[in-house]
Write a protein that binds this DNA or RNA. Structure first.
Length: 921
RNA sequence: GCCCGAGUGGCGGAAUUGGUAGACGCGUCAGACUCAAAAUCUGAUAUUGGCAACAGUGUGAAGGUUCGACUCCUUUCUCGGGUACCA
């Protein structure tokens, strides 16, 4: 009987479902006394295209690990859900009028079907969908907590806004030009004052406005000046928008990275994104005026190298300072840089432009006069919009100074030869020179000393700047969580808890109103009972995903987003697997919300995930056919140079091992029905290219097809076998036959004799068989713990090959082998295990991971390659030596070696792993 | 420009972390079974020279450390990812 994977897989999947095998126990339930382990995948957005073979890669890895941890006796939480709010469903709705909820539900059903076939051990009782009102009620609730909080920098944590009011009263803080106390302000003014401190706030800011999508986007949703989704141009626009004060958490987000086990490259990305710079402000008085220019610098050690000051064109001081003579040129320059869009300015960074204002500043230490320039390389939005230029030690200042022939003063002695005429020396290495009180001091110490001295002499203050900006939170879209805010006399108010969820209203069209308001403004009755209008923008895609890992812990709780009991039990995610493309998006926001929820005492963890692994992307492997120009004839890849041909994508499903199924090809499209072929070696060979997997490239491989042909276990094993988990790699169905035949060989180990009936032996295993088993257990256990799932698949193959050779069908060997195989290929492992243990067996139990025994791994004897001075000479058989000294003696006493040495005494005998030996003469 | 990561057979990739490079799989070649094909099984497969035993070369390139280097150090090239007038 051959392995009938279709029946076996269906049976076991049904068994797991009916028995709720993978249900995780919450505190108080049976099983919760075991240690907990939380394995999470980044949940998918259910797109209309369904899963392709690249999507399950991370899910398979996390499933293997979850199953392994269960065998090790852990209470494993391994849930799955859907990030089901988002743009594609809305775009589809705009085109077809179909409600996004309907398409989303259909897509989810399809995803679920596909996922189920792979045999994952998800606890589906905890499924979440971000677009479900029962879920987004709590997303809205958390928003209100953020709205009602401010960041108390003194306490270094978020607190309720009431403590801010108390603080204002206690300190008699005054506001506005009339110096009114908080209680003297009217309601609107009080609201405005508080709004400036709330963690979720409505504020005016430059935002990324995408006219094509009709919405604003967060910084991480914009790449190279175009929207990440759709690639539409994005412009900077001043708008009133709901935002998240993530900048308040900049330091905590940075510091937390040191305590979590995430890929170094990803942590580095987050560090760069946060972009902390420590430095100082320095004030320069303007010669002959009362104005003061404040600059920000990270290199106060180079203060004596300042040869001019540059202001951003947008800096308001520019117009005040400019002298009458320079007025015309400066105004012209400002107008010019205004007309250049952000994108143009980014695109030609190399162009140096600027103009002298005619004014001079006074150096605080030397009292020298230094010219003040305007240049668009200085950004208005960062620091103070003004820089002190040190051309000798900053490359941009250097380029500017050379272009306009400004003086270059060297104030740091470089340890290597450096020619200031060619380049600036901006490394923070060396010793200060020509720098008064900093002379002779190492740069790193000089920075500290300069900051201190500047502060002492009141020339400026120590300051820390961040590149990180607050995250724009409102979206002018329909398919997202409504922001739970209403307006009364144009003052924003949060909804009360019992008014949640604020349901998404039904509207006639999923488009902005004619007056350009967001789609929600189309709903006629979208207001409170007493007639106050709700906020019409919705939340961004990352809102629901910023806390979903907590909801899984207590998915059905109607009274809280998560009970503290469940939150404390499950803690943080022990293993989180997902793509690195979320580095500066989801993975930053989820850390932000976690830290916030921790601050206000709702959870007791301050990082969402202890360990994170980025699975690599699976690329498509496209196949090409070559059509002769103006003919319906196709030439095989090897001969294409001899003809004038055009390459075109061909459906990879018509191709096996790069050989085209010409019959299927003719049926593929009507115009190919009478195609002719020029063969090589009687075959039509297709060209190959690695590209992104996409429908238009005809290189999408559907997991359903693989499963139908080879089974789920083969798919699981092969996805792992393809290469290291973290690495990006092309999908290539060609190699799949290898794992497929491995499964058949495994099955055959149990099914022997002429009629292929199930036969296993209860005989005791011999040493050779035990050695195979124990080395397999050892290697697979090590591999799982290091997440190198690819090599364990090889290990299984070796084991089965060896056992086949030994004709071993002994239960003593096969049973533990099935247990360690079961995380990888659960269906076949469970089926064979059950056959091994009789019809009443319930499958492989928990707490059943075998341990290897080192004693079986040792050799009786080794053939040692003996080399002399590194040159390999001969193989000599030795008995097993237990200690190094004895082995050395045995080697030296060996006759063959003595002959080889011809009486010489070696200086050194080198023994490694009791195996490799080298004699040094 | 800057910051990460990676370069190993025809291909995907191993290598106990400094110890016989190329495990395992694909592909290819040969053989067995078959009227034949598929499937399956067996063997070969880095490269050069040789009928052969064997010898030389070989982990992007060039040096270095070491008895011994894919692994460590220096220089350099190529590819992938991130990021950018952030002072």
């Amino acid at each position: 009987m051959e392995y009938d994977f279709k029946t076996v897989e269906a049976e076991w999947q049904l068994f797991w479902k009916n028995n709720k095998t993978f249900k995780a126990a919450n505190p108080g339930e049976k099983g919760a006394e075991r240690p907990k382990y939380y394995v999470l995948d980044m949940f998918p957005y259910p797109s209309g295209a369904g899963l392709h073979v690249g999507h399950p890669l991370g899910y398979i890895a996390s499933d293997i690990f979850s199953r392994y941890k269960r065998h090790c006796g852990y209470n494993v939480l391994h849930p799955m859900g859907y990030d089901s709010f988002g743009l594609p469903a809305e775009q589809y709705a705009i085109q077809t009028g179909q409600h996004p909820a309907i398409t989303t539900a259909a897509n989810i059903n399809r995803y679920r079907e596909q996922l189920d076939k792979i045999g994952f051990s998800f606890d589906w009782t905890r499924e979440v969908r971000t677009s479900d009102p029962k879920y987004y009620k709590w997303t809205q609730w958390i928003f209100i907590q953020l709205y009602n909080s401010w960041y108390n920098t003194a306490a270094n944590r978020a607190e309720n806004i009431s403590t801010l009011i108390a603080h204002y009263r206690k300190t008699n803080a005054t506001f506005g030009p009339n110096q009114l106390t908080f209680d003297q302000l009217d309601e609107a003014a009080q609201a405005a004052v508080l709004m400036e401190q709330r963690l979720a706030y409505l504020g005016e800011a430059f935002v990324n406005w995408c006219p094509a999508l009709g919405t604003v986007l967060a910084n991480d949703e914009v790449k190279d000046g175009v929207s990440e989704r759709g690639g539409h141009p994005v412009e900077r626009k001043l708008m009133k928008q709901w935002s998240m004060r993530i900048t308040a958490y900049a330091d905590k987000l940075l510091e937390g990275l040191d305590h979590i086990d995430w890929p170094e490259s990803l942590k580095e990305q987050q560090r760069n994104w946060i972009g902390k710079s420590v430095g100082s402000t320095i004030q320069f008085k303007v010669s002959g005026r009362n104005d003061v220019i404040t600059v920000f610098t990270t290199r106060p050690d180079t203060i004596f190298g300042v040869s001019y000051i540059t202001l951003a064109p947008e800096n308001p001081l520019v117009t005040t300072l400019t002298t009458v003579e320079q007025q015309l040129r400066v105004n012209q320059y400002i107008a010019e840089s205004k007309s250049r869009s952000e994108r143009e300015r980014m695109a030609d960074v190399k162009r140096i432009s600027g103009v002298f204002t005619g004014a001079y500043a006074i150096h605080p230490f030397t009292h020298e006069s230094i010219p003040i320039w305007v240049g668009d390389y200085v950004l208005a939005g960062y620091g103070t919009g003004a820089v002190m230029a040190v051309p000798a030690h900053d490359s941009r200042d250097h380029a500017f100074a050379k272009h306009f022939d400004l003086p270059i003063k060297i104030v740091i002695q470089s340890p290597n030869d450096w020619n200031y005429k060619q380049a600036s020396y901006d490394e923070k290495i060396g010793v200060c020179i020509n720098s008064d009180f900093l002379n002779g001091i190492d740069v790193k110490d000089a920075i500290k000393k300069a900051i201190k001295t500047i502060a002492e002499r009141n020339f400026g203050n120590p300051q820390v700047n961040y590149r990180l900006r607050d995250a724009v939170f409102g979206r002018q879209r329909y398919w997202g969580e409504p922001i739970p805010i209403y307006y009364k006399n144009e003052i924003a108010h949060a909804l009360s808890d019992d008014a949640l969820p604020l349901l998404l209203p039904e509207i006639d069209k999923y488009l902005p109103t004619d007056s350009g308001e967001p789609p929600l403004a189309r709903a006629t009755n979208f207001k409170t009972d007493d007639g106050h209008g709700y906020e019409t923008s919705t939340m961004p895609g990352w809102a629901g995903s910023s806390w979903y890992f907590l909801r899984y812990m207590d998915a059905d709780n109607a009274d809280a987003f998560v009970s503290s009991q469940a939150a404390n039990y499950w803690g943080s995610i022990d293993l989180y697997i997902g793509g690195s493309e979320h580095a500066t998006g989801h993975l930053l926001y989820v850390r932000f919300w976690t830290k916030f929820l921790n601050d206000i005492g709702l959870i007791n963890i301050n990082e969402p995930a202890q360990k994170l692994i980025n699975q690599g992307m699976i690329q498509g492997r496209s196949n090409f056919v070559y059509r002769l120009k103006n003919e319906n004839t196709f030439v095989s890849a090897g001969l294409k140079e001899q003809y004038d041909s055009i390459a075109m994508h061909v459906d990879v499903n018509l191709v096996t091992n790069d050989v085209l199924d010409t019959y299927a090809f003719k049926k593929w499209r009507a115009d190919f029905a009478d195609a002719n072929f020029i063969f090589e070696d009687g075959k039509y060979i297709c060209g190959v290219e690695i590209e992104k997997m996409s429908k238009s490239k005809w290189n999408v491989v559907n997991p359903d097809d693989i499963i139908a042909q080879h089974g789920a276990d083969a798919l699981r094993l092969y996805e792992m076998f393809l290469g290291p988990l973290e690495q990006s790699k092309p999908w290539n169905t060609n190699g799949l036959s290898g794992v497929s035949s491995f499964l058949r060989k495994l099955w055959r180990l149990f099914h022997q004799g002429n009629n292929n009936s199930f036969v296993v032996s209860n005989e005791a295993a011999n040493r050779k068989e035990l050695k195979t088993l124990h080395k397999t257990i050892k290697k697979v256990t090590e591999d799982i713990n290091q997440f190198s799932f690819n090599t364990s698949v090889s290990t299984f193959m070796i084991a089965v090959n060896e056992l086949t050779e030994l004709k071993c069908n002994k239960k003593e060997i096969l049973e533990p082998l099935l247990i360690i195989l079961s995380p990888y290929a659960p269906h076949i492992a469970e089926e064979l295990f059950k056959k091994l243990n009789g019809p009443n067996n319930q499958g492989i139990s928990l707490e059943s991971w075998p341990a290897h025994n080192e004693a079986f791994l040792q050799e009786d004897s080794f053939a040692y390659p003996i080399s002399i001075n590194g040159k390999m000479k001969m193989n000599i058989e030795f008995p097993l030596a237990l200690d190094k000294a004895a082995l050395e003696q045995t080697i030296l006493n060996n006759d063959q070696i003595q002959t080889l040495l011809q009486g010489a005494t070696p200086k050194k005998v080198i023994v490694v792993h009791g195996k490799i030996v080298n004699l040094v003469l």
